[in-house]
Every structure is written in C-alpha cells, then in structure tokens.
C-alpha cells in the first residue's frame, strides 16, 4: 500500500534525481550532422589525450622522484659506494659518514611499532567486524579513523611534551627495574625521548591504517563459511581462528607491510621524540635516529657539502627501502584475493 503522500514524495524524488543527472540533449537532424561528428571525434581524441597525459604524469612523477633522489645522492655514492650502508660512524667533525646507526634506529623503532600494533590492530578489526553492536560499530570505526587523521607533527608535539615525560617518570624506570636483566631495557633518558618513545608514537600512526585494512578484509570473508563453522558448534574465537584469519592471512601480512612502510618513512614525529643520537645501542630507551628523522633533523643545513650529500644518500636509501616495502605489499594485495583464498 503506497499512500498518496508517499507516492508524491517518490515522484518528487525521481524528478530530483532526473534533474541531478543532466542529460545532453542530442541535437535534431542526426543525419546531417557531419560537422558535429567531426567535433565529437576531435573532442573524444582531445579528452583521451589530455587524460592519458595526466596518467602519464603520474608515472613520470614517480620516475622523476627516483631519478632525482639517486642523482642527488650521487656525490656521496662516488665517495663511499656501498660501504656507506655498513659504516657505523656519523661524525661531521671528522667528515666520516655512515648509515648503519640510522638503519638500525629505523629497524628498531619500526619493529617496536609493528610488534605492538599487529595484535592491537587485528583485535580492533575483529571487534569491529565480529563483536561490536551495530550502532557502536560506526562510531568506534570512525573514531579510530580519526586517529589516523591526527597530523604527525601534532603527535610528535604530544610525544615530546606529554608522553615522553610520562614514560621517563613512570613506565621506563619500572620496566628497567623489573626487566632490566634482559639487556634491552637499559637506563631511561631523563627527557623520555628515545627509540621506545618513537616506537610508541609510530604505533599510534600505524594502528588505524592496519586496523582499517584488516576490517575490510574480515568483512569480505564469505558469511557462509563463517556461519558454517558456527553451525558446526565452534565458538566465535574458534571460528575466527579456523576460518577468518586463515582466509585473510596474506591480506593481513600486506596490511602489516603497508603499516611498516608508514613507520619507516615517518620523519617529523620521530625526529621530535627519538632524541637524536648516532650510537648503536641495545638500550631501547636510549636516543637514536632513523633514516627519515636524521634527514628531518638536519633540515637547517649541513656543515659541509659532503655531509649534505651523505644526508641525501640517506634519503636515497629510505626511498629504495620504502619503494621495495610498498611494492611487496601491493603485489601481495593484488595477488591474493581473500575470496579466492577462502574457497
């Protein structure tokens, strides 16, 4: 039964929809439209060319970035060659430069971020897809996406002025006392800046990214498979462990690699909280620097042209690592379709 008012409303809606989709009225006398046909052909060709150029610009841009960065790093490359990657000192006074402390710092801070954010993000995604009531789901989902929208510089500001002092006064001394014997929880810095703080800030940046990808993956798992498991009498956790996670395994891996790419490349927030150091230390509370943060920290200018060129070499290393990580993640995403894998 459609009431009169409802029908009228629908008619209005249809009219609106039609108005919203402007139709190009074909001109009359279609048979004598040779001129228009030429115009169409020119227009088609022009639009195709312009859009193709724009698409080409994307490709050229990526190529130009790679070329330019490698070109900028060339001078340090010709001085040090590949030895730069394994050299342990960064000493502007004696003009000895090596990338290893920063590669180490990048690896440790990203590893901390990944270790914490992997269970967290997967837990969040499972909560959002399997547990949360419908009304809560949307709200919590958008709040977590909001976390991704916080600019890194603001997170860094928070990290240096709020999180750092808190860690230095509470968490780090406690971990040092209780777990100091392992060796990685050394004496904390008074300011709370260091690799661990950087790892935590990176965690905040990585979690929403990984969680939102995992959420989409979990939603794509066919409902009949999950329901089949439940119908066999599994608990919800057994269903997740037996069906959902195996079906999305490679997707989760890709999501984590994308998160890793984000953590590797973050410069600003890390510079603010990592303390800045060029020594390789096994104390996670100690200061350090990542490839990206070293570059950002030195933005006000290097003392010598060799130092500047070495910084650009760091940039080239960062670009190469970033490209490889992203490419791997994209290939996994494209290669493995959760639907196909589940069947």
């Amino acid at each position: 039964m459609v009431t009169g008012a409802g029908a009228r409303l629908r008619a209005v809606y249809v009219a609106c929809a039609m108005a919203a989709v402007p139709t190009t009225t074909p001109t009359t006398a279609p048979l004598r439209s040779g001129r228009r046909r030429i115009g169409d052909r020119v227009g088609d060709g022009a639009l195709r060319t312009i859009t193709a150029l724009a698409a080409l610009a994307v490709v050229v841009l990526l190529g130009a970035i790679v070329y330019k960065i490698l070109h900028l790093a060339h001078s340090a490359w010709s001085t040090y060659g590949l030895h730069f990657v394994t050299a342990k000192t960064w000493d502007p006074v004696h003009k000895a430069f090596g990338a290893l402390p920063f590669i180490y710092g990048t690896a440790i801070s990203s590893l901390i971020a990944l270790l914490i954010s992997a269970p967290l993000a997967i837990g969040i995604a499972l909560y959002l897809t399997e547990l949360a009531p419908k009304g809560v789901r949307g709200v919590v989902g958008s709040l977590i996406e909001m976390l991704a929208a916080i600019p890194s510089v603001v997170l860094g500001l928070w990290g240096i002025l709020v999180l750092g002092p808190f860690l230095a006064n509470h968490l780090e001394p406690w971990l040092h006392r209780k777990l100091g014997f392992i060796g990685i929880f050394g004496a904390p810095e008074a300011t709370g800046t260091g690799l661990f703080t950087a790892g935590l800030i990176l965690t905040i940046m990585v979690v929403p990214i990984v969680a939102s990808i995992c959420r989409e993956l979990f939603m794509q798992v066919p409902a009949d498979l999950e329901e089949g498991a439940l119908a066999l009498g599994t608990t919800r956790w057994e269903m997740i462990r037996g069906v959902t996670l195996p079906a999305t395994r490679s997707g989760i891996a890709a999501a984590l690699i994308l998160g890793l790419g984000r953590a590797l490349g973050e410069a600003i927030a890390v510079t603010q909280v990592i303390g800045g150091g060029t020594r390789i230390t096994n104390n996670v509370f100690g200061p350090g620097d990542t490839l990206a943060s070293k570059i950002a920290a030195s933005y006000q200018g290097a003392a010598s042209s060799l130092e500047q060129s070495s910084l650009l070499y760091l940039g080239a290393l960062l670009l190469i690592i970033g490209l490889v990580v992203n490419l791997v993640a994209q290939v996994i995403v494209r290669r493995f379709d959760p639907l196909r894998e589940a069947r």
Binding site: V58, L62, I69, L264, A267, N326, A329
Partner: peptide
Amino acid sequence: EFARPRVAAAIQLFLDVLNGVPTIVTGIF
C-alpha cells in the same frame, strides 16, 4: 573511461606506490 584494464591496473599500482613514498623524500625531491 579510456584505458584498457591492464594499463589501468598498472597506473593504479604507480599511484599506490607514489602514495607510499616517504613524505620526507618527496620534500628532498
């Protein structure tokens, strides 16, 4: 609207990789 699927997929890959370039590297570029 115009590209063949394979070309479109390739450009999409380029866009995704471009999105993954660390922003500090973009700055240096």
